[in-house]
Structure formats: structure tokens, C-alpha cells
Amino acid sequence: MKLGIIRCQQTEHLCPGTKCLQGAQHHTFNFEQFKDEPIELVGMVSCGGCPGKQVSARAAEMVKRGADTIALASCITRGNPIGYPCPFQAKQKDLVRRQLGENGRLLEYTHE
């Protein structure tokens, strides 16, 4: 798997992405399902700020750089660590799916 992670810009000052990165590195959390597949991190970027205005361009760039899987970090879909999931996540998922195409994988969260 060649993985790109998109995270919430609003949480960057609180979270350095440790659980997302460790999950991918050690095949834990939502990456456990890929335990038999090596994971190479292509990039980790923010959404670009509300309402996720850069998600499409950033997903496209990661695909261009080889990503076949893009994960929306748990800060977007589960609200970690601020307890507030992104109200624009459905649109972001749609935009990422378009950039990934039929063969790409979208992970809807990275960790609990």
C-alpha cells in the first residue's frame, strides 16, 4: 500500500499525527486490516482549512506521487482530539474517492 493521510488543519496545533503515523508504521488501529501488506507513506497533509477546500487538490497530488490509498485522519471523521468531527467530511470523502478512481482505497479513519 502506498498511503496518503489527510488531516484536519484545525487540530494541527494539538496533534503531531503520532497515532496516525504509528498506526501505519506498526499496522495497528485501522491499519491492522493490512497487516500482510507493507505500508509506504507517500505524504501527510492537512485539508487546507474549512470547508476542506484543498482536499481534492491534495488528494490528487498524493495520487500523482503514487498513493493508492488515502486515509482521512480520525480528527476529520471522529473528531479526535477536539471532540468535533468535521461537518464537511461527506464532501471530503466524495472528493477523495474521485481522485482515487475505481482501484484506489479510502480509509475513513486512522485510529480510535
Rank of each mutant, 00 (worst) to 15 (best):
C15P: 06
R65D: 15
F31A: 01
E40Q: 14
N30F: 09
I6V: 13
F88S: 08
P85Y: 10
G23L: 02
V45W: 03
Q92F: 01
C75N: 11
E32M: 11
Q92T: 02
I76C: 01
I39H: 08
S56I: 03
V45M: 14
G79F: 11
L3I: 13
Q22T: 02
L100Y: 11
V42L: 11
C75K: 10
G79H: 09
C50F: 11
A71K: 05
A67N: 09
P51Q: 01
I6N: 01
A90K: 13
R98K: 15
G48A: 00
E32N: 01
A67T: 10
E108W: 01
D36A: 12
F34D: 12
V45T: 09
G23M: 04
P87V: 13
V96Y: 00
C50Q: 12
L41S: 02
L41V: 04
C8Q: 07
M1S: 12
L100W: 11
K53I: 08
P16T: 10
E61W: 10
R65N: 15
Q54W: 08
G49L: 08
V45Y: 00
V55W: 12
A71P: 04
G17N: 05
K93Q: 15
P38M: 02
K19A: 13
R7P: 02
V96S: 02
E12F: 00
N80P: 06
E61C: 02
L14S: 12
I6R: 05
S46Y: 04
D94M: 14
M44F: 12
N30H: 13
I82Q: 14
H27R: 08
Q9N: 05
G17I: 10
V42F: 13
R97H: 01
I70H: 09
C86S: 10
K53C: 03
N30D: 14
Q22R: 12
L107F: 11
E102I: 07
A60G: 08
Q89N: 06
K19L: 13
K91S: 07
T11N: 05
A90G: 04
L107R: 09
H111S: 01
G48N: 07
K2D: 14
N80A: 09
G104A: 07
L14Y: 14
K35G: 04
L3G: 12
F31S: 01
E102N: 11
P81N: 06
T11L: 11
T28M: 06
I82S: 02
I82T: 14
R58H: 07
Q10M: 15
F29I: 03
H26T: 11
G17E: 13
G49I: 04
G66P: 09
G101W: 13
G48R: 01
I6S: 03
A73K: 07
C20Q: 01
P85H: 01
D36S: 07
D68R: 05
P81F: 14
A24Q: 07
L14I: 13
I70C: 00
R7N: 07
Q33Y: 05
E108K: 12
N80H: 11
N103K: 15
C50T: 09
Q9T: 06
Q22N: 09
H26V: 00
I70F: 11
S56W: 06
E108T: 15
